[in-house]
Nucleic acid binder design. Structure first.
Lengths: 218, 218
DNA sequence: GTTCTTTGTTAAAAAAATGAACAAGTTATT
DNA sequence: AATAACTTGTTCATTTTTTTAACAAAGAAC
């Protein structure tokens, strides 16, 4: 139970995965689980699980293990997904459209309260039950609604100017789908990048490495 | 120049980022750059850049630095994005549609040669200039075309069965957009996960941590 | 030809992640 | 009630990764 000092990023990144596995176990009707059993299901070590969880508190009991529903809720609390921070989306193109309709924001701590675009053909259309708003009304909207997170689904070349403007309008975090690197640009602004192009290139490297080693074996 | 021993994953994950910065510099017409200058632009140390690049070979020259175009090409070669591995997409829903039309596969080492779905309403429609094929013809298609990578844009509950089948049909890598954890399931199969839900939860954590520390300051 | 720059490389130190071990508390069994 | 079997929280050790520093060697600039 050491909430005082900062928890490392890799630990945080593992929390959603724990959450997913616990949800599945919960839905299977299983009540308790030991770190050992969970570790085997998840492909980790029991030690790592116990240490990860212990960054936030002792949720288990000796001889018993962890109560699945309780641990599931605790991790939800740690992640803060029970709160509903307001999010807006900038860019309602192909990708924005898919993100807006595909993701369950409400299960992950957010409310998607506005979708903006500057394309006259898109403004006014419905995306996942929400009407796409004119980007010109963004400032007005932000002053009224005070969203904290912006989802950037715009071409990379417009990322910097949009991000600067959004920060000035009170945005405190970005879900960044552009290639542009927002990190290190602002002080106290959270940035979560989804660089799909980078991800695809990484896969490319892995594939080529596999076929290289195939050739070596022959 | 130590190509013998395995290069660590974090290094590989940084390569696409170097590639992006170099492309930008190239487009600006800049010819050469030192590790020091690049480090300042990218928010890294010069030492780290030199060490990363040196995993693959000596691409620079003392007193000169790196030739941007050459380094750009070298990193492309390392990643293998000049080859064109065949990829297929499974699932042409919202997300699949967006991925297929939004990403430039051909710049990242892949050719998207087939898109499959089992929804009769989607089969036969065009997605990014490609006709969506019937999932029932997948086996036949794979035997003829021999794709190496599958992009999974299907609901998580169908991920396991589809992945097993695809591996048996010769697929050697997955770009996995489902929540399902494919890792550790097969031996020599590359998996690149894009867990959007996890990413959003991580952002949620960061946002809440920021506002917590705001409250502490007050 | 001298000075300046900057790499590739090695080494060392620091930080972070992972794994092993165990006392102490809980549950199950006899 | 006593004993055995489990399993956590926690500490310590190991491994991995990152960071930093240093410097000979080689090209660039003047």
């Amino acid at each position: 139970m050491k909430e005082n000092n900062q928890v490392s990023v890799p630990v945080i990144k593992r929390l959603p995965r724990y959450h997913r596995y616990l949800e599945e176990l919960k839905n299977l009707g299983i009540v308790r689980i030991s770190s050992k059993e969970l570790s085997m299901r998840m492909g980790l070590t029991a030690s790592q699980i116990r240490q990860d969880l212990n960054c936030f508190g002792g949720f288990g009991q000796q001889g018993y293990g962890y109560n699945i529903e309780q641990l599931y809720n605790e991790i939800g609390l740690i992640l803060g997904i029970n709160k509903r921070s307001k999010a807006i989306m900038i860019g309602a193109g192909n990708l924005g459209h898919a993100i807006a309709t595909h993701l369950h924001f409400e299960n992950r701590g957010f409310d998607l309260v506005g979708i903006f675009d500057n394309n006259k053909n898109v403004i006014g259309t419905k995306v996942g039950g929400r009407t796409v708003l004119d980007a010109d009304t963004l400032e007005e909207f932000c002053k009224a609604e005070k969203p904290v997170v912006a989802i950037l689904c715009i071409p990379s070349e417009y990322a910097a100017e949009n991000a600067d403007k959004l920060v000035s309008l009170g945005i405190r975090g970005f879900w960044n789908f552009t290639q542009y690197d927002l990190m290190h640009r602002y002080g106290d602004v959270a940035v979560e990048n989804v660089h799909l192009g980078d991800s695809l290139m990484t896969l490319c490297y892995q594939i080529n490495k596999l076929s290289d080693s195939d050739e070596v074996q022959k």
